[in-house]
Amino acid sequence: MWTQLLRRVMLAIPVLFLVSIMVFSLIHLIPGDPGRTILGPEATPEAVRAFDHRLGLDRPLPEQYLRWLLQVLHGDLGRSLVDGTPVSLLIAQRLPPTAELAVGALLLAILLAVPAGILGATRQGTWSDAAGTFLSLAGLSLPQFWLGLLLILYFAVRLHWLPASGYVPFLEEPLQNLKTMLLPIVVTGLRETAVTMRMMRSSLLDVLGQDYVRTARAKGLTPSAVVLRHAARNALIPVLTTSGLQLAGLLGGLVITETIFVIPGFGRLIVDSILNRDFVTLQGAVLVSALLVIAVNFLVDVLYTVLDPRIQPARGLRA
């Protein structure tokens, strides 16, 4: 197992290197002169030059990259172009609501999807299985921003049950926090629920076809004991690991959810930095999102080998 772990670390190094190059190149993808584009047409040439100098954009590219990389390795992601706040601080401030949303969404997904998946797999081919399959596909097709708008319209505007926005930290006002986060968690969790349900169903179908399940049936166990005590446990392993691997999709979805519900989270930071043409913050946030995905994928792979020693991790990182 240790050699496998080492192998995974070795594989991650070139990926991290490439990720850093891609993120660094982001600011240079701006068509024409980045300084000119960021500052706008009314900026004087001197201002543009000073800007380029401040960001080091007037130096040769390899030098710029090395300087940037060294800074990043020291935890310095630069300073926001809007107000000069360190980007790492901005990101740290924005992570708690995002983490709450992500954990809530994953919990919701597991609570709803695992029973639904078991139901679908044990009643394969029946009416309820078909309905479940259709519902999960519908869940995948429902645009999150539309669902968000409809929920706000119904629960906030019409019924006045829940607020449409107005995030407060959990530690300050727990009840109010849960009220404001309920709709966003439902919106974020929808996609996860749909994906997890499909996974649970097909994973359990796989397990149910295996020999040891037939043995358990043959020795006279009740169908529910076979499914719940023997099959479902093993079927959960790939499901739990995929829900970790869904983090990339989840982070993308949070950009939308946090925008609809005006939650000052990490996703909203990305949108704000784009609207403010704050490309330094954007660069830092994109880098952190990729690092989060790589770290979680790594942990999931480790977990996978621990939970199921038969499995050799596949080549490369999965996302």
Binding site: L11, V15, L18, V19, M22, L26, L247, A248, G249, L250, L251, G252, G253, V255, I256, I270, V271, I274, L282, V286, S289, A290, V293, I294, N297, G316, L317, R318, A319
Partner: peptide
């Protein structure tokens, strides 16, 4: 691998 490390909507946004 490196490209798949970026959440696709965030990559597209950026």
């Amino acid at each position: 691998d490196a490209m798949l490390a970026f959440p696709s909507l965030i990559l597209a946004l950026a």
